[in-house]
Structure formats: C-alpha cells, structure tokens
Write a protein that binds this DNA or RNA. Structure first.
Lengths: 192, 192
DNA sequence: GTCTATACGGTGATAGAC
DNA sequence: GTCTATCACCGTATAGAC
C-alpha cells in the first residue's frame, strides 16, 4: 500500500514522543515541530485529532514491537534462553535512550483507562499481540497452549514492570536481574 | 504532629487523582474543586506549585503503600504465601475502583523521568521503600540479604507490570495469575 | 487537496483584598 | 495568614486562503 510521507512522519514522531513523555504530556505543537509537518495537515489526515493520531501511533508501535520480538526470539530455539536474551536487548535500548524510552505502551495504557476508550482498545490490542508472540515461542518450546498463554502474561508483566523500575531508577540492573530470574523460572517450570 | 487540614486534604486529593489519571492529565482546577480548597491556599502551602504538591502526594502514597504492604505481609510467616495473598488484595482493590486505581506510582514514575527531577526522586524513594518491605519479609523467611533484595525487585516489577496489564485489560485475571506464579517461583527458589 | 492564520477554552501562576 | 480576582500562556481545534 502507498504510504503518505507526511502521515507516516506524523505517526512515527508521535509514537516516539509519547513513548518518552506520555500522552497528555505530549502537545500537538511539539509533534508538529519535531516532524516538520504543518498544523493543518494533521487534521486532514486525522480528522478526529490528537486521539486518532495517538491511536494510530499505538498501532504502529505494536507492529514494530511484534516484529522486533519475533526476530529476537528466533535467535534461540529454547524460549528459556531466547526470552531473557530479548530482555537484555530491551535493557540496552533503554540505556541507549538515557532512560527516556522503553515500554512504549506503559504510560498510554494507564492514561487511556480513564480518558479514552479508543486509546485503551489500541493498547489492549497491542499487548494481546505481543503476548501472542511470547505464547507462540513458548508453545514451540514444548509448553501446552494454555500454559504458554499463561506464562506469556507473566513474562509481559515482568518486562513492563522491569522497564518501569529501570527507567525510574536510571539503571537497568533490575531489568537484567529479571532476565536472569525469568530464565531460571522458565527452566524450572514443568511443561505439561 | 499537627497536620493542617487544607494541606492534608490537598495532598490526599492529588494522590488519588494522579493515581487514576497521571500527573499531566490532572489539572490544578480539578484538584481544587474535588478537595474543596480555594486556589490561593495551594500556593501558600506549596510555593513551588503543582510539582511540589505532586511530590508530597507521592511521598504520602509511599507512606500508605509501605503501611499496607507491611500489614498485609504480616498475615503469614511464609513470604511465599504472604506475597501472593497481598497481590490478591491489590487485585480486589483494582476491581473495586473499576480499574481506575492501583499502581499509584506507575504513571508518575514514567512521566517524571523526562519532566521533573523532583518527582523522579520522590518515585525512586517510594519504590525503594516498598522493595525494602518485601526484602525484609523475604529475609525473615530465610533468604540471604542479597537474595532478598534481588527477589524483592522481581516481585515489585511483577506487581507493577501485572497491575498495568490488569487495568488496561479491565480484568484482574493476569494479576491473580501472577500471584500464583510468584508463589510457585518463591517456593522453588533455593534459599542461599 | 494542502497548509497558514486564527479562535477559544483551560492551564499554571500571581498580585493584592481581607 | 488566608483566599478571591485576574493574568499571560499554551492546549486543541477550525475556518478559509492558496
């Protein structure tokens, strides 16, 4: 499909800013300034305004997240090794951004609960798709479908919580510890 | 110590609103309206304005969190039983608020990283104190000091991540699963 | 069809009345 | 000391020029 450049630019800039600052903290003027897009274009491409733009940005983020996770998890056949390694990659990413990025959904996910059903649904969908990637990997590693789904939730929660604590503390020690702990946990967990 | 009523009221209202909506989404006018405090009082008690008020609200939240966690964990001598039970209590709380509350620090913790050092420090301190409660419980349960600290981080991350996913999904199934999983994990984890 | 200029409401903050 | 009335600014959204 043909992608309009201004539209794509707008979505990517929004995704990046929202990841760093959150939804309410990110103003349209900042988005327009950083993306180099004129104000009117925004309402041409996104008639419903900021909320619609943010929802598209979340969908874009979800797509990227699924792609990255899938690729990273393919590096090792054993999910108990691949998942911790993926988490260490996230830790690198968080550090490289000076703790301004990582967990691109966290803030919006929480803000959206009390402010926008549209955004909330976009976040639900994003997390669901991410968990499916983990679940597929776990199932391929020998876990039953229900157990894989179950563990995928646990892994996602640990990653999100770990990213949150790491960004807050300006140190990814927690995230790396979690990677190790999850490795142990997955090794021990019986496959039934 | 004598606590000024208007000041306390302001702090508690801010803590509640910020927990539900986040820092940037919560306006001063809403805080004043809900607390029934006149506008001028705010700047008398908190000369530095919203940021100072929010920092005090975070400190207040931390105090409450530590108190609740300590009390809840005292219910069972075994940390591997007490911690999951505490998490189930959180799940109740999240549901009772219709997913508008729970994880009172998450949003501010993340927003603060790129916006306010003062708030960020308040959040760091809050998480540190909460983790100390878990660590103390784990150490009393037989873990070494270093292992207790280590596991306390993992527990905190799992709780925060689980609360995030539960609020987003409008279902505490994830949080309850995490409670069970952590119970298993702590039972298996060798005490050294 | 694409964008510039403008409107309007609400934000955080303050000066000064009681 | 406590609060009311007002400010300057930035937020999102739109109308209409090219």
């Amino acid at each position: 499909m043909v992608m309009n450049n201004a539209r794509e630019q707008l979505i990517e800039t929004t995704a990046a800013l929202v990841e760093a600052q959150g939804y309410h903290a990110t103003g349209l003027s900042q988005i327009l300034k950083e993306s180099g897009t004129p104000k009117g274009s925004l309402y041409y491409y996104f008639p419903a305004g900021k909320e619609e733009l943010a929802a598209e940005a979340i969908a874009h983020t979800a797509q990227l997240l699924v792609k990255r996770a899938t690729e990273a998890l393919a590096a090792d056949d054993d999910p108990a090794a691949a998942i911790p390694e993926f988490i260490r990659t996230i830790a690198h990413y968080v550090e490289a951004s000076d703790f301004a990025a990582g967990g691109p959904l966290i803030t919006v996910a929480l803000e959206s609960v009390t402010c926008s059903e549209r955004l909330n649904l976009a976040c639900q969908d994003a997390y669901r798709r991410l968990q499916e990637v983990f679940a597929a990997k776990l199932q391929a590693g020998g876990y039953s479908a229900t157990q894989a789904t179950h563990l995928a939730s646990f892994v996602t929660a640990a990653i999100e919580g770990g990213t949150l604590l790491s960004r807050t503390a300006h140190s990814c020690a927690v995230l790396r510890q979690i990677a190790d702990d999850l490795g142990v946990f997955l090794h021990i967990m019986p496959k039934s």
